[in-house]
Amino acid sequence: MKKALLQLHAAVFLWGFTGVLGRAISLDATLLVWYRLLITLVSLWVLFAVQNKISRIPARSVLLIGGIGLVQALHWVTFYGSIKLANVTIALTCLSTSALLSSLIEPLLLKQKFQTREIFLGFFALAGILVIYNSHLQFSWGIIVGLVSALLTVLVSVLNKKYINQYTPQQITLYQFTGGFTGLTLLLPLLLQLAPNGWQWPTAFDWVWLAVLSWLCTILTFFLYIRSLKHISAFTMNLTLTLEPLYGIALAFFLYQENKYLSNWFYLGFLLIALAVVLHMVMLLRPKRS
């Protein structure tokens, strides 16, 4: 149990580190994600081939999982786009609303009843976002793109839960990354029209950070996460995952001194979001009445 908890915290910390790496890499968001997926995909196919873990699945499932992978890739593009338009702290603050967005979106897609308390907490978090937005208008586009990123990651989670729970995590990961890379490659000419610098080649330092992002923050975290799942409860898992933005923001404050660009209103808005997330987790912990 202790080892599994350490593995999970290591994975969450590395996920929080991805935002810092996104700022360190000089590439535009789309190309950053494209190179990340390229390195990750080649590495996974080679790794799974050596371990003889590549298994075929029906063509329809390949298309479905690949489509969800494209949504995941677009989540990454918008997440790093938010960092480029604002900073790591703003992007991760927006991402921290994903758990509450999930409680509002899941009932729509899975045809479940809405929970009044969760809707209330969703508006509570929205109030926090509005406080941050109105007090940091220079980051307005970063906040908007960051919220789109949070929405897309919720969509990936709900679609995975609804359609592909019959496959192993290895199959889902491999085919999602394949679909994400393929779909993003097809969209690349269009997305590069929106990029201010067009096509860019990574610098020497970019290649180093891309390797860290792909091998440590993507592949290693996947294996740590999967192994910890066998020994940790769902509540502990969800509670630990809420630490990802906190780890990332702490790193951004330490490495980039981003706190210098934030007013006291930011901390009020972040407190409202954090309070909503904590109350949401308490609600999940409380046993339901029969």
Results as ranks from 00 to 15, higher is better:
A99L: 10
L14M: 10
K3S: 14
Y247T: 03
T168S: 14
L101F: 15
I172S: 05
Y256A: 07
L186F: 14
I132V: 14
V278W: 03
P169H: 03
V71F: 04
T153E: 15
Q72A: 09
W209N: 11
L64Y: 03
L147C: 04
G67R: 01
P245Q: 08
V277I: 14
L220V: 12
I83F: 12
V42M: 12
V50Q: 09
V33H: 07
T242L: 03
Q112S: 10
P107Q: 02
L186S: 04
G67P: 11
Y247E: 10
P287D: 07
V148C: 02
P189K: 01
L126K: 00
A24W: 09
H231K: 00
T221G: 08
L210P: 09
V158N: 06
I232V: 13
K111G: 05
V282F: 05
H231W: 00
M283C: 05
Q166C: 11
S43C: 13
V158K: 01
S290P: 15
T18K: 00
S82E: 15
L32Y: 03
K3L: 11
G22N: 13
P107K: 00
L213T: 04
T93P: 13
F120L: 14
P58H: 05
L37T: 06
L155Q: 06
L64K: 07
T178N: 08
I25Y: 08
A195H: 08
L243T: 02
S82N: 11
L110I: 03
I143V: 04
F235M: 07
D28F: 01
S43F: 15
L192Q: 09
F48M: 14
L109P: 15
P202G: 09
T18Y: 02
